[in-house]
Simulated scan of single mutants.
Amino acid sequence: MAVQTEVPTADPERALHVVAKPAREIGNFFAVSLDILVQMFRPPFAWREFIDQTWFVARVAILPAILLSIPFNAFAVFLLNALLVELGAADVGGATAGVACITQIAPMVTVLVVAGAGATAMCADLGSRTIREEIDALRVMGLDPVRGLLVPRVAALTVNALLLNAITTATGLAADYAFTVYLQNVTPGAFASSLTLLVGLRESLIAIVKAVLFGLAAGLIACYKGITVGGGPQGVGNAVNETVVFSFMTLFMINVVLTAMNAQMAS
């Protein structure tokens, strides 16, 4: 006698819930981000909080940015110049250093520092305020936490990303010069004359746009994760980890899109 076994079927309501939860999170993120962007251009602006947050992010991010920029650039330039020496084109070492540092390495270092230091610190601060119900207390008192807390933090992270990109670019070019001239015996004049061979105004503007979008995206993600924390101190830790992951994913996608646009305009 054949025994019929019942094949389990997927619960449609459960499957819908699994799909709806991330969709709801994305919708809530865009709603909060739109609110922040709208409030950013409406007076009054929380200048005191903006200055405090700008100094806070600069204090925790400048040194890591410099320390990361030097080995990243040195390693890349060493490999590129080793290939150029084999091809007998060592005099164009400045061109490879310029295009590598300005268009790729400096923005990538900015990604790492902005997401790993600045955004996580902001998320932890806002998450702590949320679990202590300070955000709800502001709403009860008739104060807008978006205007008073979120807007200055996003603006501060955007400004710091732009400044960090400039710092990492200058540090990287100095490291490229030192390694190219003193270790690979390229003349300083040849390095300087070929520096702008592959990098012009368009590449510099693309790098600036990258930095601004990096800071803006990381700030929006950090603020959203910070004010939607749940589950006490453990939830704050989870929000910080998610901020790092989501910031890296978003910022790398921005970098890929803008790099592809730059390559398309150059062709």
Results as ranks from 00 to 15, higher is better:
residue 36 I to L: 04
residue 244 V to M: 12
residue 210 K to Q: 14
residue 103 T to I: 09
residue 207 A to P: 06
residue 177 Y to S: 10
residue 233 P to C: 10
residue 157 L to S: 11
residue 46 A to G: 04
residue 52 D to V: 13
residue 233 P to F: 11
residue 27 G to N: 06
residue 18 V to E: 15
residue 21 K to F: 13
residue 3 V to T: 07
residue 15 A to I: 06
residue 212 V to E: 08
residue 213 L to G: 02
residue 259 T to K: 00
residue 52 D to L: 15
residue 137 A to S: 13
residue 15 A to H: 12
residue 228 T to D: 14
residue 264 Q to S: 12
residue 48 R to S: 14
residue 121 A to Y: 03
residue 101 C to P: 01
residue 204 S to G: 11
residue 141 M to R: 05
residue 148 G to V: 06
residue 69 S to L: 09
residue 127 G to N: 07
residue 175 A to Y: 07
residue 71 P to F: 02
residue 164 L to Q: 01
residue 20 A to Y: 08
residue 79 L to Q: 11
residue 39 Q to W: 08
residue 173 L to E: 01
residue 260 A to Q: 06
residue 156 A to K: 01
residue 206 I to E: 12
residue 155 A to R: 07
residue 188 P to N: 09
residue 62 I to S: 09
residue 65 A to F: 10
residue 184 Q to H: 12
residue 68 L to W: 03
residue 193 S to A: 15
residue 203 E to N: 11
residue 258 L to E: 00
residue 23 A to I: 14
residue 95 A to W: 06
residue 91 D to E: 15
residue 164 L to W: 05
residue 27 G to M: 10
residue 239 A to V: 05
residue 257 V to P: 00
residue 260 A to S: 08
residue 55 W to H: 11
residue 103 T to G: 10
residue 155 A to F: 08
residue 76 A to I: 13
residue 131 I to D: 05
residue 135 I to Q: 03
residue 216 L to H: 00
residue 150 L to I: 00
residue 90 A to P: 01
residue 151 V to G: 01
residue 163 L to T: 00
residue 105 I to D: 02
residue 131 I to H: 05
residue 91 D to K: 09
residue 166 A to Q: 05
residue 28 N to T: 12
residue 105 I to N: 00
residue 244 V to K: 01
residue 204 S to C: 12
residue 55 W to Y: 10
residue 76 A to M: 14
residue 234 Q to H: 14
residue 41 F to E: 03
residue 120 T to S: 09
residue 75 F to L: 15
residue 179 F to R: 01
residue 244 V to W: 00
residue 260 A to I: 00
residue 64 P to F: 12
residue 228 T to M: 08
residue 79 L to D: 11
residue 117 A to H: 07
residue 151 V to L: 09
residue 173 L to A: 07
residue 195 L to P: 05
residue 262 N to H: 07
residue 239 A to P: 04
residue 191 F to Q: 05
residue 41 F to C: 13
residue 144 D to C: 08
residue 250 T to W: 04
residue 254 I to E: 03
residue 233 P to S: 15
residue 266 A to P: 01
residue 16 L to T: 00
residue 89 A to G: 11
residue 232 G to R: 05
residue 1 M to Y: 09
residue 3 V to W: 03
residue 35 D to S: 15
residue 113 V to H: 07
residue 104 Q to K: 14
